[in-house]
């Protein structure tokens, strides 16, 4: 009994350490400007200051950044899902000589560090006039999603019996019909895993955004808050409100799809 209690205490303490940033963020996002200084770790506000959220939304360009983040992330994860479904099919079902080679090439992407592409892609995007364009983020996001996504989708497809596809073909279905009408619904669990993992990576991504975006127009949320641009420098409450808005979507996604994510991460680790 005592041992059990000790175990629980230790677990709760570490859980608190891991949860601290979230508690801290939400707590501070409800403080009035006067309440930030002074001692204490967490400060319970007299009354929750919802105004921080209102001012974050009305005075800044936050709605625009939120839209940019959402648009860029969703475009990237949808394209990555479709492309890796196609690649997965070609790698597990189609019969061709070079598939091992091409699969290996794509898997290289799990080894190559994203940061090694920052300098050359900056010049590349400058050449093709993509600097400061959402595509400068969407394209590399898709490319770097492909290795892990293809791996997970291929792994899942291997477990689906081929007889279903064969009978569909007998009935006159084309290969594309097989992929998008028959296999796509069946690979839903793997597709969900892939989309959630990619959502979390790209919603949070900021180093490419910091490199390839130069004007205000297409800034994403994490990038916008990195420097706490002008109008916010003294409005701490609004800063914390914005940071909470960056953190919450991924946390909520994770809480909703914990199992899918955990499975995806382990599969990626073990097979990668």
């Amino acid at each position: 009994m005592l041992r059990k209690g000790l175990l629980q205490t230790v677990l709760w303490m570490v859980a608190l350490l891991q949860l601290f940033p979230l508690i801290w963020l939400i707590n501070y996002s409800f403080l009035k400007s006067g309440e930030f200084f002074g001692s204490g770790i967490l400060k319970w506000p007299q009354t929750p200051e919802w105004n921080n959220y209102i001012s974050a939304f009305t005075y800044g360009s936050v709605p625009k950044y939120l839209w940019n983040s959402a648009f860029i992330t969703i475009a990237a994860i949808l394209a990555a899902a479709v492309l890796s479904l196609m690649l997965g099919y070609a790698f597990t079902r189609m019969e061709w000589r070079l598939r091992g080679v091409f699969m290996a090439v794509i898997m290289l992407g799990m080894i190559v560090p994203i940061h090694a592409t920052l300098l050359p892609n900056f010049i590349l995007f400058d050449w093709i006039k993509l600097l400061d364009n959402p595509l400068a983020l969407i394209l590399p996001y898709i490319a770097f999603s492909l290795p892990i996504s293809t791996l997970i989708i291929s792994g899942f497809m291997e477990t689906i019996p081929r007889s279903i596809e064969e009978s569909a073909v007998m009935d006159g279905c084309s290969v594309y019909g097989v992929i998008f009408r028959i296999l796509m619904p069946m690979t839903k669990p793997a597709l969900a895993t892939v989309c959630i993992m990619n959502f979390i990576s790209w919603w949070n991504e900021f180093i490419m955004a910091n490199t390839f975006l130069t004007s205000e127009t297409f800034k994403t949320l994490p990038f916008s808050i990195m420097k706490f641009a002008g109008q916010y420098s003294s409005n701490y409450g609004a800063q914390f409100a914005v940071m909470t808005m960056i953190a919450l979507p991924t946390v909520i996604m994770y809480l909703l799809f914990t199992e899918q994510m955990s499975r995806g991460i382990t599969a990626g680790a073990v097979k990668g």
Partner: peptide
């Protein structure tokens, strides 16, 4: 049906080309 080259090309080319263009080509540039 499964060894049709055109189908293989259509399935593989978009992903593979994007990957080569965004990951491998930049390293060659570097």
């Amino acid at each position: 049906l499964l060894s049709n080259r055109m189908t293989i090309f259509v399935l593989v080319a978009p992903g593979l080309l994007l990957f080569l263009f965004m990951v491998c080509f930049p390293i060659a540039m570097s």
